[in-house]
Design a protein around this nucleic acid. Structure first.
Lengths: 188, 188
DNA sequence: AATATAAGTGAATATTTATTCGCTAAAAAA
DNA sequence: TTTTTTAGCGAATAAATATTCACTTATATT
């Protein structure tokens, strides 16, 4: 019986390796060694390297969305709700930096199939709904949602990298400051 | 005598291939074929694949900074000057999307050596100086420069990708709108 | 023009890496 | 318990890829 814990170990190994060597430099041998299993065992769990990466990508994307909306109360006023989600995302990406980098690497990689990509795109729906609400309440600029979302996510992603690599501590003050940048950009 | 035009052809081939197949999927054979030269010739111009990629990375980084400040008048008032630079960057990245993607791919790649990376970092100096001026004139929030720069660049990069992939035309109106998002975020 | 030096070639080689396979050990079914 | 099925192994194989090299062609030097 295939072991769920083994899937987890393989995934963890891949995340660690991608952060260190990039999708390019990571071999199946590296993965098996890092996971503490035989190379052949990887092929018991996955058809090949592509399948492995696609499976991990899908899992990470799904997880990412779930985490974003954790403890979000749709009844609460817009701005605190938005702030809560924004903080969720920032915190999670910083605390699971390897997962974040893996996703980033995948977006422009030929490993990810069109099908996997399309699934990932659909997961963005809740974010569009969120922005739509903000615009309906006239709290957010009436600008194309695509532009707003990319602006929000893009600035955050780069901030995550900057904070991580600079080794700066993520104080509450710094989080608030960076959120304010974002909010001032999009507020009506 | 080594031919400058051949360097250019090799570089152009790499940019095209990376956009299509990623740093990973691009072989030396691919490059020579795309550039219309023999595989061995690549080794006349570069020691190996790593050296080739590092050289192109350095060239692109330098070019990127030069382009950013093209026609910038330091005597002009801050906001129009900043806007000019911002537009330079956005336009260039959209018009030279392959170059942009190549740089993005390199940042997290093991191909890029620590030395190359350090050189690239130093090129960012003019941007820090620009932000410093804006803060001195009290036009820009008094927030850590690192955070501001990553915010500006991060949001722009994601916008470039979004616009490119959505196939949306880059109208003047859309450029103005996106600049306003950025300015509202950082203005004092 | 003759000679020397350097660029250009692409098939051959070396290396790296994904994948397979015969086997053993464990787990499930009978 | 015996049998069957499945997980796990890692050396062996196959495929892909970087790099070399003996040779040709072009360019510079005398």
């Amino acid at each position: 019986m295939k072991d769920d814990k083994k899937y987890a170990r393989i995934f963890r190994a891949v995340l660690k390796l991608v952060a260190k060597k990039g999708l390019a430099g990571m071999t199946m041998g590296d993965i098996s060694k890092e996971a503490g299993i035989a190379t052949g065992t990887l092929y018991v769990y996955f058809d090949n390297k592509d399948a492995l990466i696609n499976a991990l990508f899908a899992a990470c994307r799904e997880n990412s969305v779930a985490v974003s909306f954790r403890d979000y109360d749709p009844q609460a006023p817009f701005k605190p709700g938005f702030r809560h989600i924004w903080m969720n995302i920032l915190r999670y990406r910083l605390q699971h930096f390897e997962e974040f980098i893996f996703l980033e690497q995948c977006y422009h990689s030929p490993y990810i199939t069109a099908a996997t990509r399309e699934k990932a795109r659909q997961l963005a729906e809740p974010f569009y709904a969120l922005i739509a609400r903000g615009q309906a309440e006239q709290l957010i600029k009436n600008v194309e949602k695509d532009l707003l979302i990319t602006f929000i996510i893009g600035s955050m992603n780069e901030l995550v990298k900057q904070i991580h690599y600079s080794g700066a501590a993520l104080t509450k003050a710094r989080m608030s400051t960076t959120f304010d940048l974002c909010w001032d950009a999009i507020k009506a």
